[in-house]
């Protein structure tokens, strides 16, 4: 498929909108909340997860079945998106879906660090990014973290990981490596200024919002944990909300940080979330409110600019949320949490 040339927005957006509309609704979540894990799998069999549940049903059961079916459907769905889209749209979607490359690399690193078996790691990988199956297999089969870093030479992660690996060897924690992977993804995400036109502009706006939200979350987590780390090191460039220097001062003083966010671009979208943060003092609630705000913002963009990449990205976000929600329900059920506790973990628009 050619990277340049016109894009088939009409076709892809129509398909994506239909899929967006058939995601689980409030009512369905409420039904799921009352089910056991086996019932959840059976319920999923009647929805768009049917194929995956049927294919995996003989090998897994219970929560594992739900989990694998979710991963499988997610990967298939996003591969479909790439298959449909052409031209500029394809280029933008593929760039965004590299998110899963970053996710896969992080999973492999964590697996090696925690000593999980190859099989466990492989089943957690989501095959929706740019890395091919064979390459993922090689990553999983790698003996040590160092050989993973070596395998990734020549990919986008190379420059970021090389310097982080030294930090990892000194400290012995995974944080620098994970952070490097995130930064490699986000900092290559936003296309440079040379890309002109309304489509590129919108794409940039959407991604800036995502980076900003990610920065807010990181800053708040750091402020909350009181860890003695320099927040600027964990800052992702490319957002519009704050810059590397400011974030250090803002983290130290949480109330200024909150006022600062309120005054800026996303003040309206986030006001509910910020109120919640000020009242509840609970970071989890705030993070879910952030997720919800990002979902709403992406939906808003996709209605304002129907023939653009925005509806596709909004769908990707919504689908990921749905998968996270179902997983939270299934896992919560298995762990014996109450309905109310699980409901708090869900992000429902």
């Amino acid at each position: 498929m050619s990277v340049y040339g016109s894009a088939n927005y009409e076709y892809v957006v129509a398909r994506v909108r239909h899929r967006r509309a058939s995601l689980f609704s409030d009512d369905e979540y409420r039904k799921l909340l009352r089910m056991g894990t086996g019932e959840i799998a059976r319920f999923m069999e009647e929805t768009q997860y049917e194929d995956a549940v049927n294919a995996l049903g003989s090998r897994f059961s219970g929560v594992d079945l739900v989990e694998h079916a979710l991963n499988e459907t997610l990967a298939e769905d996003f591969q479909d998106l790439l298959r449909y889209s052409e031209g500029r749209l394809y280029e933008q979607v593929v760039r965004y879906l590299r998110k899963f490359d970053a996710w896969n690399v992080k999973t492999v690193l964590r697996g090696l660090y925690s000593g999980a078996t190859d099989e466990e790691v492989r089943s957690d990988l989501i095959d929706a990014g740019e890395f091919e199956d064979a390459f993922l297999d090689r990553l999983v089969a790698a003996e040590s973290i160092e050989s993973v870093v070596e395998l990734l030479d020549g990919t986008r992660f190379e420059t970021y990981l090389d310097s982080a690996f030294e930090a990892y060897e000194e400290s012995g924690t995974l944080v620098p490596l994970e952070n490097a992977v995130d930064r490699a993804y986000y900092e290559n995400l936003v296309p440079d200024e040379s890309a002109r036109g309304e489509a590129a502009q919108l794409y940039r706006e959407f991604l800036e919002a995502e980076i900003d939200f990610r920065n807010v979350r990181n800053a708040l987590r750091l402020a909350r944990s009181g860890a003695d780390v320099d927040p600027a090191e964990y800052f992702i460039d490319g957002g519009a909300l704050f810059d590397r220097k400011e974030v250090g001062q803002l983290v130290a003083d949480r109330s200024t940080l909150v006022t600062r966010i309120r005054e800026r671009k996303y003040g309206d979208e986030l006001s509910k979330a910020l109120d919640e943060l000020e009242d509840a003092e609970s970071l989890i609630g705030f993070e879910h409110a952030l997720d919800r705000a990002l979902l709403e913002y992406s939906d808003h963009l996709s209605y304002v600019y129907p023939l653009s990449v925005c509806p596709v990205l909004a769908y990707v976000l919504a689908k990921e949320r749905e998968v996270d929600n179902i997983r939270a329900i299934a896992r919560g059920r298995e762990a014996g949490l109450s309905e109310a506790e699980i409901e708090e973990e869900l992000v429902i628009l």
Binding site: Y11, V12, A14, R17, H18, R19
Partner: peptide, 17 residues
Amino acid sequence: RGIGSAAVGAIAEDQDL
């Protein structure tokens, strides 16, 4: 051209459309 490609996309998702 535009409407047709959107319509085919919608039909591919759901025959009833």
